[in-house]
Amino acid sequence: MELNAISIGFVVFSIFTLGGGFGVVTTRNLFQGTIWLMVSLFGVAGYFILLSAPFLAAVQILVYIGAIAILIIFAVMLTRSVARIKERYIRILPSFIASLALFLILLLGVTIPIFGAHSPESIPEYVASTRNLGTALVDENGFVVPFLLASVLLTAAMIGAIFIARDENA
């Protein structure tokens, strides 16, 4: 791995992603946890840029930082989660061992080519652009059915969320 803009970016975004992730699971204060989550997801958006998917990066920031962060903060405030919970963890040791074991297995899986797969030596020069994605999403041979289903899912989720969270007394 030679030293260039992409590798420096990779290291920086890795620190963001993993550091933010650690923050989410360790912090006592859930408001700070939300901010850590956003740091982590910002790092993921950076990865998307490194992997030449700028559209996904922008959508990631728009959806997570613009919408889900606000949603989580409102939920944290409405459930008074910042002040009330005293213990952070249950069954901390088994969970830690389980997740560590999972990580080691996954790491072995991606580094040792036991499944016969080889790591590609080079990356393709040409990649699909945002325009290609847009065309494919409404192409009948592409993703038009999942696209329509996704919009139905979003509408259903919106109506469901409003219906569930609605206070009948108010």
């Binding site: 922008a58 613009g66 962060a69």
Partner: peptide
Amino acid sequence: EIGALYFVAIASFGTLAIMAAGW
């Protein structure tokens, strides 16, 4: 390539900053 989307995405940082300031 995504200039207009970038404009909207970046603006969402401002919202989060206001929330963080208030809290």
